[in-house]
Amino acid sequence: METLAGVTRMRLVGGNLALDFVNTRTGPPVGPPDDDVLTGYPELVAWGAYAGALTDPEAETLRRLSNNDPGGAHAAFTRSLRSRDDLDEVFRAVAAGRSPSTAVLARLRDDEADALGHARLDRGNTYGWTWRDDRTLARPLRPVVHAAVQLLTTGALDRIKGCGGCRFLFNDESKNRSRRWCSMDDCGTSEKIRRYVAARRTRSTG
């Protein structure tokens, strides 16, 4: 089980906020996850700040709100896990070249409608949605859902891939779209070591 400190040790390698949210569960490429960074509402808020979905003042506001309304915090956390399951199903299907179910896409549509219902259209270099004035316990989830819909509707779907060494998903931004690992420092290096050991074993027995 992870702690708040464990949240900030996780790797943000998805290339998209929604994929990094899915990647809060770890495990092998196939089969169920074996660990989860998100164990409660405090971890959800900590992850939001770490991943850039929340500013530090927003995170502090949410911590105070959750202390005053533990039941509401639990409900918001439970909803976030349901949404994570939906995003996991959607993007694993896309990575495998399949279409997600209509039911899960309908729930994602509803989550996006709710998110935009609490958003502001603000101007930076271009206009975009922000949640600056949203002081509700569901706040950490809203930019995640919006990032997911943006990726599905404007991204190159063939760039969404699953790591060959773990269950992480990522948006392949390499020029030749040849990325196979969530990170060369972790899964990529492990595969190189495995191949090296296998090659030495083959030479020694040949």
Rank of each mutant, 00 (worst) to 15 (best):
21 F>P: 00
206 G>D: 08
101 S>P: 01
92 R>H: 15
197 V>R: 15
15 G>T: 05
25 R>I: 10
38 L>N: 07
178 S>M: 08
144 V>P: 00
205 T>E: 13
64 R>S: 15
17 L>F: 01
201 R>Y: 08
110 D>K: 14
137 L>V: 03
28 P>S: 14
187 C>G: 10
156 A>V: 12
186 D>F: 10
159 R>D: 01
46 A>I: 05
81 L>P: 06
6 G>I: 04
62 L>W: 03
135 R>G: 13
33 P>I: 09
192 K>G: 00
47 W>G: 03
58 E>D: 10
17 L>H: 07
175 K>S: 13
60 E>W: 09
49 A>D: 06
11 R>F: 13
132 R>M: 13
33 P>R: 10
65 L>G: 07
153 T>C: 04
201 R>S: 12
1 M>E: 10
107 R>A: 02
54 L>V: 02
37 V>Y: 09
66 S>W: 00
112 E>R: 10
4 L>F: 01
143 P>Y: 07
95 A>R: 07
134 D>S: 08
173 E>Y: 13
58 E>V: 06
101 S>K: 09
26 T>G: 15
52 G>C: 07
171 N>I: 04
87 L>G: 03
43 E>K: 12
123 R>P: 08
52 G>D: 10
4 L>Q: 10
144 V>G: 03
8 T>Q: 10
134 D>E: 11
175 K>Q: 13
185 D>I: 08
158 D>N: 13
48 G>C: 02
91 F>M: 05
154 T>P: 01
64 R>G: 14
6 G>Q: 02
183 S>Y: 06
120 R>N: 11
186 D>N: 14
65 L>A: 13
114 D>A: 15
165 G>W: 02
73 A>E: 00
105 L>V: 00
137 L>Y: 05
62 L>Q: 01
108 L>T: 03
101 S>N: 03
47 W>E: 05
75 A>C: 05
107 R>V: 00
12 L>W: 09
198 A>Q: 12
69 D>R: 01
158 D>P: 08
78 T>Y: 10
137 L>Q: 06
59 A>I: 00
206 G>L: 08
206 G>M: 02
141 L>S: 12
110 D>Q: 15
129 W>K: 08
49 A>C: 03
151 L>C: 02
85 D>K: 11
179 R>M: 00
181 W>C: 07
191 E>A: 14
147 A>D: 15
192 K>Y: 00
133 D>S: 15
41 Y>K: 06
77 F>W: 13
12 L>T: 12
174 S>I: 02
143 P>E: 04
130 T>N: 10
135 R>Y: 14
182 C>N: 11
48 G>R: 02
180 R>W: 08
